[in-house]
Each structure stands twice: as C-alpha cells, then as structure tokens.
Design a binder for these strands. Structure first.
Length: 464
RNA sequence: GGUGAGUUGGCGGAGUGGUUACGCAGCGGAUUGCAAAUCCGUGUACACCGGUUCGAAUCCGGUACUCACCUCCA
C-alpha cells in the first residue's frame, strides 16, 4: 500500500493520510458559482483535485472513493447577471453549468459516467440548509434579526482558529462593515430576505435565500456525512468561506470532525499579476481553447507547478508544453496505456507532487520506455487521445483553398529540389515560413502545419 | 494594520542537512543538400544577513522584495 501524505491546511504540516474508512474515502471540493464561463483560475482547483481523485481511486479502489463538487446556483452575482442579460436565473445557471462541464472535459476532467462523483446544486439542498439553520438556532449558535439569520461567532470559541485570525484582529485592522442588526460585526449570514422579484424560498424567517457558506456545510453533510476525509478548495476560500463552513458544521454536529484534511491550492497569476478584468489579463478556459490551445496543453501547464505554489501563466509555458506533448504523442502513438509506473504514483502520493510526476515522465521518455510513458501519462490525464487532433492541422478547420495553395508551393519546391536548385527551394520554404506555414521534409515526403501564433499567418499577399 | 504563501541556474520548476533533479532555451558534435526532427556531449543555482552544525541552498532567527486573502454588504 502506498503511503499518501498531504499538507493539511488545518495544521500547516505534512501529514500521513489515513481515511476514516478505507472502503469509503470521501472528498469534497468547493465548485464554481455559475454565472459566467470558467476563467483559468477556476480551472486550477478542478485539475488539482482531479489528480487527487485519481490518486485516491488508484490507492483505495475506484468503488471506494466518493467525490462531491458543488455547483453554486443561488448567489447575488447570479441574480445580478441574470438581470443584466434579462434571462431567467434557471436558464443562466443551467447554461453556465453546461459550459463548465464541457470546458473542464476539454481539460481531461470528465465524470459523466462516474457513479461516485456528485455535483450537487445548491438549490436542490434548501431543505437541508433550513434544517441546519434551525438546528443552529436551537443550539444557540445562530439568531434571527430583521428577517436575517446570522451565525454568532462568539458562540463558537474556535472561530478564527482555522485561518489563524482572531475576531479582535479582524475587527481592529480592517473594514468590517457593521450592520445594525448584527450582535458582533463578524457574524455572518445564514439566511437573508429576498424581494418579491428575487429568487427565494419560504422559511420560518420569511421568504428568503441562503447565505453563501451554509450551502457547502449542508451539501457535504447530506452527501458525505458529518465527518469526512478531505475538503479542498482555492486558498482564497480559506477565509471567510471555510472558516465559516467549519463553524457551522462543527456547531451543528458537535461530535463530528467535519473535514479531517484540508487542501488548498494557491492562486493563479498571469504574467506575474493577479488575473483581473481591470488589469486586462483576464480570460476564460474557452478563450484559450478558441485560440487552438489544446485542453491537454492547459492541463499540462497547470500540473507543472505544485498546487501549493502560486502559478504564473505565460505564453512560454504554453509553447513548452506543446513541444513536450507533441514529442510524447509521437513516441506513444501505437501504445496503449496500462498500470501506471510506481514512481508516478509515489510522486503524487507525496503531497500531490505533479511536477515530480511530470519529471518522471521525462525520465521514462528519455529511457525510451514508451509503455511506461503512456501508462503514466494516461494516469495523469495526459495523452488521452491520438495525436491527430492537434499535432497536425485539424482537417476540419483548414480551408481547402489553403491546402491547395500550400500544396502548390510544396510541389514547386519539390521540383526545385529534384533539380538540385536548392537556393530556390530554400526561398520557397522561407516564404511560407514568413506567413506562418512551417514545412518539414522527411523520407516520406514533405509535411506542413500552421504556426497559429504567427503574426502574419495566412497573409498570402506578402508572397506576391 | 492582520494572516498566509513565496524568493533556486537565461527561463520554467522539483527536491534534499554532505552525492547530476528534470524540462525548455544556449553551446559543441553526429545526421540531413540545407533546415526540422532525432541522437551524443556540455555550462550556469539555490534573495540578503546572522546563528546551529564537522558540513546548510536544505534547520533556527532577522532583513528585503513579490503575491494573495482579510465585505455578503446597496
């Protein structure tokens, strides 16, 4: 049996992973709020925890691991967006959810046929949330005020322990807005009133909707039980979201552990800066796919940095990943995947060291172990498809007139080469290269492809 | 102001108290009409200042810099 270790955010230390029940290993990860296309930052935890899920399945057996990743489909951002676009909330969330699933599938994260994967939508668990809120009020951890229900942070002495903050510090240094009905400025909303034109549900406290944090407590409780093994999410969720989740769940089920191991992935940056619309470096996964960057390349880049380190997204990484994957695809074209090499599993078992796992693939490649390479890559969700899809220009996307033009020039060049007129042959090759058409000679003839990042791509006028 | 993460060779990026990470790029060579690809070989490193140690890039303390989070509230 492989020993798995994780850095547990709860303790800040690397710990040996021991599941509550090896026959029922349970993982919960905070999923997206569905109001827009997933941006690249959203993709990082999805890929990181996909790797974790694969590892757990490998070590404990596929049927013994459950994974729940929620869909937040009730949220003020959703209400706002639906208003702006004048669409029904339900239409917005279902469409966005579908986009999310499709985009993530491109990155090799696809659980469509997996009975142990759960993707609960918050609005399907309102009853569970109401039950939990009622329980928290009954136990004195929450109170009603002006149609809101608030969690009382003073009722939970460990509040702040998880994220390493004291209630005093948070109030002292910062911009906590004090609502008049709050007993303590840090108290957070479990339930809030909805206007008639806002989505809502009947509750003991009037027509309203849940606060953000309660949904994850309710869904993990319903699907995985009051104690489960691993809770994951982005580092930005540590506070307040996860702190609040812990407070709610531990107060509701005082004898539970809630989540025993917490894993947080660090944030993604773009060219050294936070990805933000205001900085102008904001883009979605779909944007990248539309630029003909294969999902596999995106996945590779995301895996090349350890999950607990900030990752910087750059063009160079995309280029490098392309080069490497192209090579590996070529090497493993006719190989089918088998059991992953032990060293790959070991690398992941060591606090999800994906970069070390990729290094191991490099080692296998340089040793010519194509079977090991294919098997290891397959385990990591790479080299899934044949190389035809993206190594060469996709025939469906290439204009037949372009093919004709390129072939015309290739034939001219072949004639020149046959005449040993090499300066003419080189001139043709240089001309094609200047508009982004790269050609390569091989014993079987001349092949070509487009450099999709080339600035003069397809600019045939330049050849005249 | 509080909290956390980070700082490794041209670039990316692991790891470890004493031994080459690895990849990309570069350089030299083989091969090719020439390129490309491939193969062989090769250089460069651990932010700064102290401390612990026979020995630290790896442990401890401090400094600098970078990044993130610290609002659910109209």
């Amino acid at each position: 049996m492989v020993t798995i270790t994780f850095t547990n955010s709860k303790s800040g230390k690397e710990e040996i992973f021991e599941p509550i029940n090896p026959q029922n290993v349970r993982l919960y990860v905070c999923g997206p709020t569905v109001y827009d296309r997933a941006h690249l930052g959203n993709a990082r935890p999805v890929v990181v925890f996909d790797i974790l899920y694969r590892l757990l399945q490998h070590v404990f057996g596929k049927q013994n691991v459950s994974y729940a990743r929620n869909i937040t489909d009730i949220d003020d951002k959703i209400i706002e967006r639906a208003g702006i676009e004048n669409v029904a909330i339900d239409v917005l969330t279902r469409t966005t959810h579908r986009w999310f699933r499709d985009d993530m599938a491109e990155l090799g994260v696809d659980y469509r046929d997996d009975p142990r994967f759960f993707e609960p939508r918050a609005t399907e668990y309102i009853d569970e949330m109401l039950r939990m809120i009622t329980g928290l009020i009954a136990q004195g951890h929450a109170y009603e005020a002006e149609r809101h229900v608030l969690f009382s942070v003073e009722s939970y002495s460990d509040y702040g322990c998880f994220s390493g903050r004291s209630v005093e510090d948070m109030i002292a240094g910062s911009r906590v807005e004090v609502a008049p009905y709050k007993k303590n400025p840090m108290d957070f909303v479990l339930w809030k009133p909805s206007a008639d034109d806002q989505p809502g549900w009947e509750s003991p406290w009037g027509f309203g909707r849940p606060g953000w944090h309660i949904e994850c407590s309710a869904m993990s409780h319903a699907l995985l039980g009051e104690s489960f093994d691993i809770h994951g999410g982005g580092a930005d969720l540590k506070f307040p979201h996860h702190e609040n989740e812990i407070a709610q769940s531990k107060c509701f089920s005082p004898n539970s552990d809630f989540a025993r191991y917490w894993l947080h992935n660090e944030m993604l940056q773009v060219d050294g800066k936070k990805m933000a619309k205001s900085v102008g470096n904001f883009f979605t996964v779909r944007d990248l796919l539309d630029q003909s960057i294969p999902g596999e390349v995106i996945r590779f880049v995301l895996m090349s940095t350890h999950y607990r380190k900030p990752m910087d997204w750059t063009q160079k990484k995309i280029r490098d990943a392309r080069t490497i994957l192209r090579k590996w695809h070529d090497m493993t074209m006719d190989v089918s995947a088998g059991t992953p090499p032990h060293a790959i599993v070991e690398a992941l078992a060591s606090d999800l060291n994906t970069a070390a796992a990729l290094a191991e693939l490099h080692r296998l490649a340089s040793e010519g172990d194509v079977q090991g390479l294919k098997s290891g890559a397959d385990f990591l969700g790479l080299l899934q498809s044949g190389s035809d899809g993206w190594l060469n220009a996709d025939p469906e996307n290439v204009d037949s007139r372009l093919v004709e033009k390129v072939e015309y020039w290739i034939n001219r060049r072949a004639a020149a080469r046959a005449d040993k007129n090499y300066s003419r042959a080189d001139e043709i090759r240089a001309n094609l290269a200047s508009i982004g058409i790269m050609i390569t000679d091989s014993p079987n003839g001349t092949t070509w492809e487009q450099d999709l990042e080339h600035e003069h791509l397809g600019n045939w006028e330049m050849l005249e």
